[in-house]
Amino acid sequence: MTTPLLYAGGGILLFSIGLHALLIRRHLLRKILAINIMGSGVFMVFIAIGARGTDAVGDPVTQVMVLTGIVVSLCFTAVAIALTIRMHNLTNCTTFATDEESSLD
């Protein structure tokens, strides 16, 4: 069991935990958190891949990718929170209403 493999396994675990929470938790903030945890899991896999080389420095390309990914997920989190606040202001509710889930008409 090498360290990179441990990190990769941890990343996959985080991804699964996030996925579970995204689907099960009803509160929108929890869902947003869950998505962020999933993202962190993926970034950990990338870091593990970058560190797998023999040289001490690690692969700069994966680090660049992770940085970009963090920026992207930051944008998404901001938009998601803005939408959630707007929804809370409108409906005083922080979950997807059940009737919306079932009906479109």
């Binding site: 991804f15 993926v42 997920s73 998404f76 939408l83 959630t84 929804m87 409108l90 997807f96 919306e100």
Partner: peptide, 25 residues
């Protein structure tokens, strides 16, 4: 801007992120 539009947008955001994170992995 309506309630339903916001819900649809948020849902789309979650789904989009789930899809792209899976792709990124």
């Amino acid at each position: 801007g309506g309630k339903q539009a916001l819900a649809a947008a948020l849902r789309y955001l979650f789904i989009g992120l789930l899809g792209s994170l899976s792709y990124l992995l």
